[in-house]
């Protein structure tokens, strides 16, 4: 039994959403994680707490507030309308915004702990060898945290594929626009199409298992160590 058009759309949409979200997460999460790894105090603690919120909040809470924020009568909603000519809520872009916020801790936390393990002394050594902070980051931090970047990207991607509550609240269920795999599966179960539901569910199980297995088999941590 071949995949239906709706199912194919859902798969494509899910991959696009997770891919775009992962790229944005790395762009936002890397400087954020670096900042958090080098600072102590009230503000960093507050930011860290905010980043971690999606881990414990019901996704519907996040989705509800995002829905209010992105609605056409808000400043952001109107700005978007003026900029793109289309509504922000219930759009693919809304899904991206929601996914980035929802999956942020899965990218920031592994990166932050990897950055914290980089001894300050190595960066000082790099500085005396002529490396500016940007060069220090590129030539010391990034290569030393390669595995953590891979882990962060994988977790961010997988977690976006797996989200449901936020997507349902802010994306609705528009086939080809906002109907991702988890929603399509929900639809199939609702209408008692169990054979098709099995196919999607099993597919997601296999995908998640394979990704996590690959990740953990390579070792969760970066392989360097400092000896003295």
């Amino acid at each position: 039994m071949p995949l239906s058009t709706a199912e194919q759309d859902a798969i494509y949409l899910t991959i696009a959403l997770a891919g775009i979200t992962t790229v944005l997460l790395l762009l936002i999460g890397t400087p954020l994680a670096w900042w958090l790894s080098r600072r102590r105090g009230t503000l960093p603690a507050l930011v860290e707490s905010l980043v971690a919120m999606p881990l414990i909040l019901p996704p519907t809470v996040l989705g509800f507030y995002l829905l209010l924020l992105l609605a056409p009568d808000t400043a952001l909603g109107q700005f978007w309308q003026a900029l793109t000519g289309s509504q922000l809520a219930f759009s693919f872009s809304a899904l991206v915004i929601g996914s980035v916020i929802y999956s942020l801790p899965f990218v920031v936390q592994p990166l932050q702990s990897a950055f914290q393990r980089i001894p300050q002394g190595l960066l000082q050594a790099a500085a005396t060898l002529g490396a500016s902070p940007a060069v220090q980051f590129r030539s010391v931090v990034v290569p030393m945290c390669r595995r953590s970047f891979l882990a962060a990207a994988s977790l961010g991607f997988a977690h976006t594929v797996g989200e449901f509550g936020v997507v349902l609240m802010i994306g609705g269920n528009i086939p080809g626009e906002t109907q991702v795999l988890s929603i399509a599966l929900y639809d199939q179960v609702e209408s008692l199409r169990f054979a098709e539901a099995h196919r999607l569910a099993a597919g997601l199980v296999m995908f998640s298992l394979a990704l996590l297995f690959l990740l953990y088999r390579r070792g969760g941590r970066d392989s360097w160590r400092v000896t003295s």
Binding site: Q124, A125, A127, T128, M144
Partner: peptide, 20 residues
């Protein structure tokens, strides 16, 4: 002048070789 613009070499007690 930041350290990366000073023409100094620094040999630390603990070596600080790049492990990667």
């Amino acid at each position: 002048l930041p350290p990366w613009e000073r023409r100094v070499g620094y040999v630390f007690q603990d070596g600080r070789l790049f492990p990667h």
